[in-house]
């Protein structure tokens, strides 16, 4: 039996090569500014919040769905925390209670998404699009559209904490990503995710409880957004009503660049993490090189399209099939 284990990590390997090439190029082009330890840790910290949201998005995209509500959940979570813990507010709960409340409410939104998608048979795109608008409305309403400041000190401090020279925010991402990588690979929860994503009927006939699993996936995804919301909150030292807007797009882009397939069944947390780093590298590097931010936006857009195109191209070549699959979407 030929050991062709590397086959599975095909996309990851390519992404890693792309990332390294970009870093080497930028290190040279910026005369070492890019490769300074300060900039590298900064880059990882900048990627971390999107990176955490994207972990959750990976799960949903593997199910064959999509979650547009993640950005609003980021905003909601940070705002809920701020309102309940602000030392100038009416509750003034301890930090830990604030965290539990923020995550609990995020999980609830995830559950509602899951019910709409699984039981209500509303297409994920529509259900979470509605939820995105709805939740943002809630954030605006409870905050009156204003920032909520005076969050607890230890919460604000978290953003500047470092361990081994790496920011705590970056650690949060690294640990969560590593944990989810193991969960997806080594637990039945993870295996069920891929089974349901690649063939729901076959999964059902394999004795997998689809409803329970779908609920868990959406709840877990929302929890990751909730955590990201708290991470954002510590950085802003406040609850920001517009916090997290547009994050869904970066998250989707990271997942897609990371090699996941929008038709489900394919995708990895590692790929997504590399995808998130690639996006941030372009932003960060472009910045250092003084590239017009609007041009950078165009570049990122083009890269998303190219990533999917390249992936499909390689797959088709491998299968020896025509190009028609590019456009096939169930």
């Amino acid at each position: 039996m030929a050991g062709r284990r590397e086959r599975k990590t095909f996309t990851e390997k390519n992404l890693l090569i792309i990332l390294v090439v970009m870093w080497v190029f930028l290190a040279i082009a910026t005369g070492g500014n890019f490769s300074s330890w300060a900039n590298i840790t900064n880059l990882i910290r900048q990627s971390s919040i999107n990176g955490v949201v994207a972990i959750g998005m990976t799960l949903i995209i593997i199910t064959g769905g999509i979650d547009l509500s993640v950005g609003s959940i980021v905003g909601l979570s940070g705002m809920v925390f701020a309102i309940f813990t602000s030392t100038r507010g009416e509750f003034q709960f301890p930090t830990i209670v604030g965290i539990l409340l923020a995550l609990g409410i995020s999980a609830l939104i995830g559950l509602i998404n899951a019910v709409a998608v699984h039981d209500g048979k509303v297409p994920a795109f529509i259900a979470t699009l509605g939820m995105m608008t709805l939740v943002r409305g809630v954030v605006m309403y409870i905050s009156g559209g204003r920032m909520v400041t005076a969050v607890p000190l230890e919460y604000r401090r978290f953003a500047v904490l470092e361990f081994l020279g790496i920011p705590a925010l970056a650690w949060s991402w690294i640990i969560l990503a590593a944990f989810m990588m193991l969960v997806l690979k080594y637990t039945k929860f993870g295996r069920n995710l891929y089974a349901i994503g690649s063939n729901e009927e076959a999964a059902r006939l394999s004795g997998i409880n689809i409803r329970l699993n779908m609920y868990s996936f959406y709840i877990v995804a929302a929890l990751f957004s909730g955590i990201a919301g708290l991470m954002l909150g510590t950085r802003m030292a406040a609850g920001v009503p517009t916090g997290g807007s547009g994050y869904e797009l970066d998250a989707i882009a990271s997942v897609v660049i990371g090699g996941a397939s929008l038709s489900g069944g394919v995708g990895t947390v590692l790929g997504t993490a590399l995808g998130a780093l690639i996006i941030q590298t372009i932003r960060n590097g472009g910045n250092l090189l003084g590239v017009d931010p609007f041009i950078m936006q165009m570049v990122i857009g083009a890269i998303i399209i190219l990533a999917v195109f390249f992936d499909q191209f390689v797959k088709n070549r491998r299968k020896g099939e025509g190009r028609k699959r590019l456009f096939k979407r169930a």
Partner: peptide, 24 residues
């Protein structure tokens, strides 16, 4: 199942996954 392409196979996954999915 009778219609194994539609109701049995997890086409994108590897052989190991396809055998083990109910046997973990």
């Amino acid at each position: 199942p009778e219609d194994r392409r539609k109701q049995g196979i997890f086409l994108q996954q590897d052989i190991d996954f396809n055998i083990n999915i109910i046997n973990f």
